[in-house]
Amino acid sequence: MKLAEWTERQTGETRRAVYSFAFIDEGAKREIRRKTLKAVAIPGYQVPFGSREMPVARGWGTGGIQLTLSLIGPDDILKIIDQGSDDSVNAVNIRKFVRSVTDVETTTETAAATLIQTRHRIPEEPMRDGQILVFQVPIPEPLRDVEPSEAETRRMHAEADYSRMWLHLYEDIVKYKEITIGSRYPLMVNDRHLMDPSPIPRWDCPKLHQSETLYLFGAGREKRIYAIPPWTEVEPLGFEDHPFRVENFEGKTCRFCGADNAFLDEMKDEETGETVYSCSDTAYCLKVLNEKGADS
């Protein structure tokens, strides 16, 4: 549906006089778009924005929701993921909400979507040019764990002084013989800004490097927007003798689709008590299953 058509409809029976298209008012959308453009212009830099009240509490994806609502048009096809799943409560509710204020089409297929909002995962299926992935971010500041003061972390970003984070990694290696950060792995973006990729697993970090897709990050509670534009250098921190590495699933496969090249969730089988694995990205799992079904 074109925006004009939609506006047309507003005067008809389905009139929704109280809210504008996509819930937030046009002025706010413009502000968020402006901040988004700035974020794209300075990859990895956290741009402050006026985070609006949303119909869910801050900390439940309001940063991502505001980005989605300010970007979405009537022709978009929307997909919402929560930890890889299209069907968890957070994903279902956000999808319903966005649909109710925009009437856009929604999908669970990664390839079919033009706009994807995600919590803590990047889809397994490679994303392409023309798609946008919006992340919900709880803690946008990668240095927060090593430095509690906001004034100090801003100075550190301004001066590209990331020795504290490097020291943190060094201490990890001294204590545990390896870097123990599981999610929120610190990334160097465009050789300049240290960035928090939101709590995605290490598995997903390489997908941010030299990607075809625009990645946008929204932290509603912390009021920050940042971005990784397409074809940006993104390098996870690592030492020459202790390089960055992703999770190791060697010898493990998804118990549903049999995938051996996807990020797997570990769980206990309720009946037998044995440890089993399944794809964290449920849409991907389904796709592999369908393809297998078509083959046989």
Partner: peptide, 12 residues
């Protein structure tokens, strides 16, 4: 190591 890291050392 902190000072060495500041000076760009990247080998533990």
């Amino acid at each position: 190591a902190e000072r060495l890291l500041m000076a760009g050392w990247r080998n533990v």
